[in-house]
Nucleic acid binder design. Sequence first.
DNA 1: GGACTAATGCGTACGCCGTAAAGATAAGGT
DNA 2: ACCTTATCTTTACGGCGTACGCATTAGTCC
Lengths: 224, 224
Amino acid sequence: MKLSALNPAGPERRPQLTRERVMAAAIELADREGIESISMRRLAQELGVEAMSLYTHVRSKNDLLDGMADAVISQVPVSAEGAGWKASLRQLSLAARGVMLRHPWAPRIVEAQATPGPAALQYVNGVLGILREGGFSITQTHHALHILGSRLLGFTQALFDDSGDLEPEAAAALASALGASHPYVVEMALAVTHGGALGRCDDDAEFEFALDFLLDGLARMQSG
Amino acid sequence: MKLSALNPAGPERRPQLTRERVMAAAIELADREGIESISMRRLAQELGVEAMSLYTHVRSKNDLLDGMADAVISQVPVSAEGAGWKASLRQLSLAARGVMLRHPWAPRIVEAQATPGPAALQYVNGVLGILREGGFSITQTHHALHILGSRLLGFTQALFDDSGDLEPEAAAALASALGASHPYVVEMALAVTHGGALGRCDDDAEFEFALDFLLDGLARMQSG
DNA sequence: GGACTAATGCGTACGCCGTAAAGATAAGGT
DNA sequence: ACCTTATCTTTACGGCGTACGCATTAGTCC
C-alpha cells in the first residue's frame, strides 16, 4: 500500500528516523520504564517503526547503549570557567550527579562503555584542563583522576546501599536476626534509620561531603 | 534408560548437584570464557546436566549471579586482627583487589546485586568493626564508607581506562586526530604511554596510591 | 515526464535466551 | 512392597539480537 498516494506529502507523515531521534527515544523509554525494557523491538515500536529499521542508524544494540551513554554525558555542562580548579571540579561533579539522578540507569551503561564516545572525551578533556590549568602537574593530575574516579561523573559505587529507611518493625527484625553475628551492621543500620543517632542517610549530602573530602585532600597534595 | 542398572552404585556416577557445585562451575566458566557466556543451558552443559535441573538449586538466573557475587566476596579474608585500623583496611582492600583481579567479571555483578548476600554482610560488618574499634564515631564511620566506596571491594570505576599501552603510530594518530580539540587528553595519553613522562600506567600502584591518599585523609579526619 | 541510483525501511527467519509445567527417575522411610 | 520426596529431564512458549533480501522512497540526471 502506498501511503504517499493516500497522503501525498501529507504533514502527518512521521518524521525521518535519525540516530538522534533513536537515541532520544531510547533515553526517554529507559527513563520511563527502566533500562531493562530497552529492546530493539520495543524501541522500534515506540518510534512507530519495525525493529530492523533501527539498524540503519545504529550498528548494534551495544552501539545503541554506547550512544545513550554518550548522549547522557553530553548533558553535563562542561563550562565552569574562571572559578579556580576546586570550585570548577565541585560544580562539574555536582552537575554530573544531577544528570545521573535524572537517568538512574545511566551509570551502569556509562561504566560498561568500552571506549569513550565524543562527549566522554570532551568531558575528560575538560576535567584534565581544569586540573592542569589549576597548577597540577601531569603526575598529580593522573593521580587525581584515579582518586576522584567515578565521582567526577556524579556517581559512586557504595559498598552497600544504606539509603533505605527501615520501618521500626523491620529494624527490630534485623536487629534480632543479625545482632549476634553482625553487630556493627546493625549498629550502623539503626543509626542511619530515622530513629537513630544520624538523620536518615542523605545521599546528596553524603556525596558532597565525600567530594569535598577528596578535593581538600587534592589541595593538600598539590601544595605539600 | 536406567543408568543405575548399568552401573549399580558405580563410582563413575556424577556427583550430586548442589548449589555450591553450581556456583563453583559458574565461576569457573566465567573466569574461563567471560561472564557473557554464562547461560543456563551453557552452564548446565558444563555440569553434564540439562538446563532446567539447575533450577532445583537456584531460583533464577539472577539468583545465580547473586550467588556468584557472594561466593567471590567470600574469598576475601576478613580477618586482619590487631594491626590498627589503617593497616587492617589497607590489607583488606588490597586482598579484595587481588580477588577481583582473579575474577575480572566480578565487579560488574557485585555492584548489580540488589541486596547483599551473607558474605557481603560479613564483609561489611568486618569493615565497620575495624573502623569502630579504631576509634571512629558512627558518623565518621558512615562518612568513611562513602569515601572509600567500592575501593573497599578492590575496584574503582575510573573515569576512563588509561591503562592501555599505545603503539607509537597509534599515539601519533591520536595526537593528530584529537590534538586540536582535546589537547589535555592527548597530553595525558602520551604521558601515560611508555614513551611518555610517566611510566606505563601501573594500575596496581595507582590503586595503592589512591587508597593511601584516602586512608591518610581519614586519619586526619579522625584526629582533627 | 521518465529512468536510474542510493538510501531507507520492512518481512521473514535463525538460533539463542530464561523459565513454566508436567513427566520420569531415584532414594529413603514406613 | 509402597509411598513420599527430591532430583533431573522433556517439551514448549514467548522474547531476544540480527543476517539477509525485498520494497519503497527521494534525489538526480536526461
